[in-house]
Amino acid sequence: MGVVRRVVTTREGGVSVAPYDSFNLGDHVGDDPQAVAANRSRLARHVGLPDERVVWMEQIHSPTITVVDGPVDGPVPATDGLVTAAPNLALAVLTADCVPVLLSDDEAGVIGAVHAGRIGARNGIVAEALRVMVGLGADPARISALLGPAASGHLYEVPPDMARDVEARLPGSMCRTGANTIGLDLRAGITRQLAAAGVTAIAVDPRCTIADERLFSHRRGAPTGRLASVIWREAH
């Protein structure tokens, strides 16, 4: 079915100026649109695809997954996850603390990219992505998942009521921060959720967006840019 590729960007290698320096891929954060377009073209060249074959989303912290089967004119509206069975079509998720989740059933040729922030993760967007992928022929037992750079539980402090609310819907996510306050480790909760759904191949990028200044972090300093986590299936 072809080789599945995944790429996660950093702040480095683009043309945006401060505070979006330099490889900002978000078109909704106040950066110069021409700089964002240039950065997105650079990313497309890096992954070996035409610009139009990288699909972006208008992310709104929804639990909505959209199936795409080819290039889209502009970002896919009002969605926080993309699924496709089309080859040579890259799905991109933008983050600056939220969890990017890249999913693939290589045998079925079905891939997904999910923006799992606190609200979306709480409201089940990862489970919805799995459901949509299964509808296209994927099997959770064959799905591999990569959870990209995100705010770590060590630094992601939230009010106790918020943490308890998320924990009730995404068990395993409430934690203690390094300062011994109440926090959220969304990647821990999502990992548990994936495992409960039958996904066994789960990789977690250990980088914390808040701590690592090579990455964009909304909590560390807004306004700022956005990283992209991208997945596509090469087929020639």
Score class of each variant (00 low, 15 high):
43 L>Y: 05
45 R>V: 12
4 V>Y: 10
215 L>V: 00
12 E>R: 05
217 S>L: 11
97 D>F: 04
141 A>I: 09
220 R>Y: 10
7 V>Q: 04
134 V>P: 01
153 G>P: 11
204 V>T: 13
181 T>K: 15
167 E>R: 05
106 D>Y: 09
231 I>F: 01
127 A>R: 09
63 P>L: 13
84 T>Y: 01
170 L>P: 09
2 G>N: 12
113 A>T: 07
66 T>D: 15
69 D>T: 14
58 E>H: 15
222 A>H: 10
60 I>G: 07
109 G>S: 12
55 V>H: 11
74 G>Q: 08
195 A>T: 08
157 E>S: 12
54 V>R: 06
205 D>M: 06
159 P>R: 07
85 A>P: 04
169 R>F: 13
155 L>V: 13
109 G>K: 00
50 P>F: 14
139 D>N: 14
123 N>F: 00
28 H>Y: 12
202 I>C: 05
142 R>P: 08
218 H>P: 05
182 I>S: 13
149 P>W: 01
20 Y>N: 03
39 N>W: 00
94 L>P: 03
165 D>Q: 14
49 L>I: 12
105 D>K: 05
140 P>G: 09
109 G>D: 08
121 A>D: 10
32 D>P: 03
115 H>W: 09
104 S>E: 03
199 V>C: 06
92 A>Q: 02
148 G>P: 00
92 A>K: 01
143 I>C: 03
165 D>P: 10
101 V>D: 02
51 D>M: 11
158 V>C: 11
107 E>D: 11
48 G>F: 12
10 T>E: 02
84 T>V: 04
209 T>M: 08
145 A>F: 03
203 A>C: 08
36 V>L: 04
4 V>R: 09
209 T>W: 03
179 A>D: 13
97 D>A: 05
162 M>W: 12
225 G>Q: 06
13 G>A: 04
107 E>F: 10
231 I>K: 02
147 L>V: 02
86 A>T: 08
235 A>L: 14
172 G>D: 08
165 D>Y: 12
52 E>N: 14
31 D>L: 04
175 C>T: 15
113 A>D: 07
142 R>L: 05
84 T>H: 06
121 A>S: 15
65 I>N: 02
224 T>D: 01
56 W>N: 01
151 A>D: 07
